[in-house]
Amino acid sequence: MNWDDARIFLAIHRETTLRAAARSLKLDQATVGRRLAALEHALGAALFVRTSTGYMLTQAGKLALAPAELMERSAHDLSRRTQGMDKRLAGEIKVTTTEALALEFVIPAIERLRAKHPDVTIQLNTSTQLVNLARRDADIALRTVRPTQPGLVARRLASWEMGLFASSGYLERHGLPVEGEAFAGHDLAVYQPYMAAMRVPALAGEPVHGGRIAASVNSNLSLRAAVNAGIGIGEIPVNIGAADGLIRIWPGCSREKPYEIWLVTHQDLRQTARIRALIDEISQGFESK
């Protein structure tokens, strides 16, 4: 099995369908199917059995998995280490972050970078899903949690206080909530993943059981939009709430932990010229906030 064959094998294993594997590899489905058939013929063994839920490893496939993953790690190590010596301000950079951070910081940074170095191109993925930087799924990631995986270099770009905010229109209709009454009589806009992770759901330390969850969203950009629209009271970074013209409720109350933003890259890539240049542009955007 060579590396090209291993890529096909691993993609089918991870995606479980030929269509999804082809999409991840940027190949057409027929090509992936032919490559799998040729690989199984060369090995003299079936690597997958097709089930109602997708392609599942056979016993032979299970035996092939660890060596194929070792080939993958070696290929990515080679790619990272050689690209880390690349001094050209040209080529592609893969960036992953949330939609809110992309709009506020990454896209302006790309604009500044491209004005200076038009031969650099950016592949931007906006998602809350964490990707594997060791596998080169991304060269740069902006995350709200510091990673712990070995080989990654993390730099904290921001540590923002989180406070309660509402629009002037909302407060005209509903008035201010009373501290200690768990938002009784009030509508709330909440970030669903954060609330789901709490043992006792709360905003800025105040339990929310007395309020009504008017909007539960899965992106910070949607949360800001919901608060701006007057749908309910929400917990957002203090500097962003002020910039949006919102009114802060209970200025003395804030979330126990600040909202942190970490810029992450692999240690083998951090000195690549084009990656270093984009890191500098992104960092500049945070310094100006």
Score class of each variant (00 low, 15 high):
Asp4Gln: 11
Phe9Met: 03
Phe9Pro: 01
Leu10Thr: 06
Leu10Trp: 02
Ile12Trp: 02
Thr17Met: 04
Thr17Val: 02
Thr17Pro: 02
Arg19Ser: 12
Ala22Val: 01
Arg23Asp: 13
Arg23Tyr: 06
Ser24Lys: 06
Lys26Cys: 09
Asp28Leu: 05
Asp28Met: 09
Gln29Tyr: 06
Val32His: 03
Arg35His: 10
Glu40Arg: 08
Glu40Val: 09
Glu40His: 12
Ala42Ile: 09
Ala42Pro: 08
Leu43Met: 15
Leu47Ser: 01
Thr53Gln: 13
Thr53Gly: 08
Tyr55Glu: 09
Met56Ser: 13
Met56Glu: 15
Leu57Pro: 14
Gly61Ile: 11
Lys62Gln: 15
Glu69Cys: 11
Leu70Asp: 08
Met71Phe: 10
Met71His: 01
Glu72Cys: 01
Arg73Cys: 08
Ala75Asn: 09
Ser79Lys: 12
Arg80Cys: 05
Met85Ser: 15
Asp86Cys: 04
Ala90Val: 08
Ile93Gln: 02
Lys94Gly: 04
Lys94Arg: 10
Val95Thr: 04
Val106Ile: 15
Ala109Lys: 02
Lys116Thr: 13
His117Leu: 03
His117Phe: 15
Val120Arg: 01
Ile122Tyr: 02
Gln123Phe: 13
Thr126Trp: 01
Thr128Leu: 10
Thr128Glu: 06
Val131Lys: 08
Arg136Leu: 10
Arg136Gln: 07
Asp137Ser: 06
Asp139His: 12
Ile140Thr: 03
Ala141Trp: 02
Leu142Glu: 01
Arg143Ser: 09
Arg143Val: 12
Val145Arg: 12
Val145Tyr: 04
Pro150His: 14
Leu152Val: 09
Gly163Leu: 03
Gly163Met: 03
Ala166Pro: 03
Ala166Met: 02
Ala166Lys: 00
Tyr170Met: 05
Glu172Tyr: 01
Glu172His: 06
Arg173Tyr: 04
Gly175Tyr: 03
Pro177Gln: 00
Val178Asp: 06
Glu179Leu: 12
Phe183Thr: 05
Gln192Ser: 13
Gln192Tyr: 14
Ala197Cys: 08
Ala202Thr: 15
Leu203Gly: 08
Ala204Gly: 14
Gly205Cys: 14
Pro207Gly: 12
His209Asp: 13
Ala215Asn: 13
Ala215Trp: 00
Ser219Arg: 14
Ala225Leu: 07
Ala229Cys: 09
Gly232Thr: 11
Ile233Asn: 02
Gly234Thr: 10
Ile247Val: 15
Arg248Met: 11
Ile249Gly: 05
Trp250Val: 12
Pro251Asn: 01
Cys253Ile: 06
Lys257Gly: 04
Tyr259Leu: 13
Val264Arg: 00
Val264Ile: 15
Gln271Ser: 14
Thr272Cys: 11
Ala273Ser: 13
Ile275Tyr: 01
Ala277Pro: 05
Ala277Glu: 02
Ala277Tyr: 05
Leu278Pro: 05
Glu281Asp: 12
Ser283Glu: 14
Gln284Val: 07
Phe286Asp: 03
